[in-house]
Amino acid sequence: MIDVTDARKYYGDFTALDDVSLSIPAGSLTALLGPSGSGKSTLLRSIAGLETLDAGRVVISGDDVTDVPPQKRGIGFVFQHYAAFKHMTVRDNVAFGLTIRKRPKNEINRKVDELLEIVGLGGLQKRYPAQLSGGQRQRMALARALAVDPQVLLLDEPFGALDAKVRADLRQWLRRLHDEVHVTTVLVTHDQEEALDVADQIAVLNKGRIEQIGAPEDLYERPVNDFVMSFLGSVAKIGPHLVRPHDLRLERALERWSPEERAEMEPSKATVGRVVRLGFEVRVDLLDEAGERLSAEITRRDDERLALKAGDVVYVRPVRALPPEEAFPALAM
């Protein structure tokens, strides 16, 4: 559906995209995830035609659009800061793409009303963007982008300017919307929770390269390197290994592990620093024998059984022993 091949983009000495190839299946919701400066926005803007690649091709639905201007690519684009047409009403904003295509007025009105209903802004046709909240403005921008029936919908940090509560609501709403309209969607975000929450497929970018691409659970459970591992969630370092804090098992006695388990990987000793109870999850901050800090997340039930408090000495071991090929070199932390 969208195929990017060997994309390169430089800003002076800075390499924004370093030979990136990416394939996005039709009807999917793909997240481009990465820290700032990773090239994720540049990649999205290159698909839109808002940036010109220094090398590489962009193909949308089988058409090579590399040299096609954005207005002819059949895309919908949503910006972080809404990019609302401030002098136009909500109705005229959403109708913009249809008005310049000179569609009949009754068709435009019908489509606008329908879209505003879908995005939950029905009845606000006559308002101006300044009279809407941030969340409403972004939903208007989404309706505006969808009005032209784009082949692909491109969202550049669409919820980045909103507060946490609205952001969480909107992204679930976006997921439901996507399940309804099925338009191929690419979302740029730096928030791993957002990516894990909404996307079918995540591409993790770092320094202008794609580190890994795959389904959310694949990336979370089987990251190919330390960067992906640490970017997709919190990590604990145990010896040379990086593991998810909830994949650590704590016990007061070594005998709690079976001899086989101990033969496979010996639990290590650590001192409890702090126990933080966050609802069902309990975070235990530990100090291992080498003086390294790590955090484990255990369930409330285990916490009750162990009755841990600061100063206790415990044993810690990953739930699953890590086979050598999954043993990552330790991050310099």
């Binding site: 201007p69 954005p70 800061h81 982008a145």
Partner: peptide
């Protein structure tokens, strides 16, 4: 805001 112009481009203008 340049993004407003880019938004118009993306909508076909």
């Amino acid at each position: 805001d340049r993004e407003v112009e880019q938004a118009a481009h993306s909508l076909g203008a």
